[in-house]
């Protein structure tokens, strides 16, 4: 996701202009063949007929999308009504990812601000501290979270021992656990872009605001936040988008009630019970959502750039 902001630079250095097609060929070949083509094939699969042992029959069909959106009764002959099962899975995913994003923002913004206002020499160290966990295997981090949050886990043990609670808090397998897991997975993505924009912020503007009788919190709301808005939006996107399709956090930390898109898709490809066209269709719906979010984001960034 970090590539949203990548532009490749605007300078037109052209030392190797003659060789550019040869230099690009390997990436076109590998990415075209193993990333772009597969997404196209997936689109085709979503319009095919399912085969019962997993896989597909090469016959055009809207069945996958139909199953996703409509309920036609047990035998498929009733009047189609909106099918809420899958839409609500998506809705829950959006909700969970949104809450995780807000949680990340609430903790990430002050952190980013605090780091950006450290003396220049120590900023890199603070950034380093925040990014280390990101380099640790996501699975291990999620497992660690599960271990910590268990009913008999160290967190509950600690709280009971210091007398804050009598009975263990039931966090694991709740929505909160999933949000915490998502927050934990993608927090550095929130901190880094916000940090980058606060670091560029000219603090003389805060002094000017204070000079013109603004309180600190007014200055934060009226001066700093608007100035660093592109960074905040970038951070929110970078947390929200991967959270939406996350698999590990909901699978390991959530229960059956906290089922998210990732698990729904994964299930379609497990063993013989799966439904490949349906999985492909659900993936297409997710991909479309992400593309729409990214397009809106890109337009906003362009507008913000045009303003400054």
């Amino acid at each position: 996701m970090a590539g949203v902001a990548a532009s490749g630079g605007s300078v037109a250095a052209d030392t190797y202009a003659k060789a550019r097609h040869w230099l690009l060929a390997p990436s076109w070949l590998v990415l075209g063949f193993f990333v772009f083509a597969p997404v196209c094939v997936m689109l085709i699969y979503s319009f095919l007929t399912k085969e019962f042992r997993g896989g597909v029959i090469w016959e055009f069909s809207f069945a996958a999308y139909d199953q996703f959106f409509f309920d036609r009764g047990l035998f498929g002959d009733a009047e189609p009504t909106l099918q809420w099962t899958y839409i609500s899975v998506f809705w829950r995913s959006i909700w969970q990812a949104g809450l995780a994003t807000i949680l990340s923002l609430l903790i990430g913004f002050p952190t980013a601000y605090f780091i950006a206002t450290r003396p220049e020499g120590s900023r890199a160290f603070w950034v380093f501290l925040v990014t280390i966990p990101y380099w640790v295997n996501l699975l291990i981090r999620t497992v660690s979270m599960k271990f910590l949050l268990r009913d008999e886990g160290p967190l509950n043990e600690l709280l009971i021992n210091i007398g804050l609670i009598n009975d263990p808090l039931h966090i694991i397998y709740t929505n909160l656990a999933v949000q915490l897991g998502l927050f934990y997975s993608y927090l550095p993505f929130m901190v880094l872009p916000i940090y980058a924009s606060i670091e560029r912020y000219n603090f003389t503007m805060s002094e000017a605001a204070a000079d013109l009788y603004a309180t600190k919190w007014t200055a934060l709301r009226r001066i700093i936040l608007p100035a660093v808005k592109p960074g905040v939006i970038a951070g929110c996107i970078l947390v929200f988008v991967p959270s939406l399709g996350a698999f590990l956090a909901p699978d390991l930390l959530g229960g059956a009630k906290n089922f998210m898109i990732g698990s729904l898709i994964e299930e379609q490809f497990k063993g013989n019970a799966g439904n490949w066209p349906f999985g492909a269709a659900a993936s297409m719906v997710l991909l479309t959502m992400v593309v729409v979010i990214l397009l809106i984001f890109a337009r906003q960034q362009r507008r913000a750039e045009a303003q400054s």
């Binding site: 996701m1 970090a2 590539g3 949203v4 990548a6 532009s7 490749g8 630079g9 037109a12 250095a13 052209d14 030392t15 190797y16 202009a17 060789a19 550019r20 097609h21 230099l23 690009l24 990436s27 076109w28 990415l31 075209g32 990333v35 772009f36 997404v39 997936m42 988008v241 991967p242 939406l244 399709g245 996350a246 698999f247 898109i261 990732g262 898709i265 994964e266 993936s283 997710l286 991909l287 992400v290 593309v291 990214l294």
Partner: peptide, 28 residues
């Protein structure tokens, strides 16, 4: 090719293709 290849039509699409794997959700 992107940074030292001058300006050309394929530049932006190439950049898009290269960053595609981090744009597309992992599960997809």
């Amino acid at each position: 090719a992107i940074v030292r290849g001058g300006r050309y039509k394929l530049r932006v699409p190439s950049l898009g293709l290269i960053t595609l794997p981090i744009m597309v959700p992992e599960i997809v």
